[in-house]
Design a protein around this nucleic acid. Structure first.
Ligand SMILES: [Mn+2]
Ligand SMILES: [Mn+2]
Ligand SMILES: [Zn+2]
Ligand SMILES: [Zn+2]
Lengths: 162, 162
DNA sequence: TTAGAAATTGATAGTCATTTTCAGTTTTTT
DNA sequence: AAAAAACTGAAAATGACTATCAATTTCTAA
């Protein structure tokens, strides 16, 4: 799904979405060093199933850079978050996973069975925000939204599932 | 905001919303013992500013029952969650707070300055869910939604704030 | 009201994700 | 290539949360 071009972007039918190379470019443009550890974390992010925990990224990243350490995974994710290149997803058990950002205002749907995660855009909750503001008197500045369900593959394997 | 009646409900203009006594009734009806520790946690939940962390509930609860222990706070919150009487809110730092449930399908707005939290209802994201399902092929089963902004009081103190 | 059974409690001791420290290494700059 | 700056990973620390267990409280059935 998507072809990688020389400039580091992946092409889908209708738009260019960033891949590891594009993110690395953003990183260096922001003044961060181009290091083997950071490259391996970026590769790991895209090797994953749409999202991954720091421990999973360590395992995936070591395929590219065996000496990679968990602390650097955390530190790289923090930098990527600051630059808006990844988002932290909240798991019910309190742990976190990270997903690459492909749309400016994106949220994620997570498969409850295989944990495949896809970012979606087009979240239009302006009406809900307006209603909340009038109900509560709050001025709303941002929101979190995560959806859970079954991905297409898991729906096929569990035809009876809700 | 709301008057407590003998049966444990608080009355607002248009509806009865549960208070500590009503929740205690639900608890005992479900077969759990009516204990001093549980009562103190319920009181603490309503003494708080709309939400509170387990540590904050411990402190608030000890005003009612000085021997209260943190483990019991966690255990009580787990029971209350199972019964649908509280919801766990996710903090950006990974910790959690708990808020009493007053509406069946409610979500929360949280003040970024004073952390006052109000539950709102009327979240209608059916259109968003439909769009996500057709965009991704997922079948959506549930969602998380939290909003952040400024409460009425904090807006007054920070007139320039966005 | 009372005795025994069942449920609950809280101190203590884990567990585990995440953070801090720090000396050594890699990358960048000159 | 040398010096400065940035980065790295091992090890230790932190802190939210969980498991254990003996002691206490609450409930049930006389
Ligand atoms: Mn949105
Ligand atoms: Mn909703
Ligand atoms: Zn799936
Ligand atoms: Zn406020």
């Amino acid at each position: 799904m998507g072809v990688k071009t020389e400039n580091g972007f992946q092409i889908t039918r209708d738009q260019a979405i960033p891949g590891p190379d594009a993110m690395l470019a953003t990183l260096t443009k922001a003044g961060y060093s181009n290091t083997r550890a950071r490259r391996s974390v970026l590769e790991a992010l895209f090797d994953a199933n749409g999202q991954a925990s720091p421990a999973e990224l360590l395992a995936l990243g070591r395929a590219h850079h065996p000496a990679l350490g968990i602390v650097t995974v955390y530190r790289t994710l923090e930098v990527l978050s600051e630059l808006g290149l990844v988002r932290k997803l909240h798991q019910d058990d309190g742990c976190h996973t990270y997903a690459p950002v492909q749309h400016h205002h994106g949220h994620y749907v997570i498969c409850e069975r295989c944990h495949r995660t896809i970012e979606f855009e087009g979240c239009d909750i302006a009406a809900v925000v307006a209603s909340v503001e009038s109900q509560t008197g709050f001025q709303v500045r941002e929101h979190w939204l995560e959806m859970f369900g079954l991905c297409p593959d898991c729906r096929l394997e569990h035809p009876g599932a809700v």
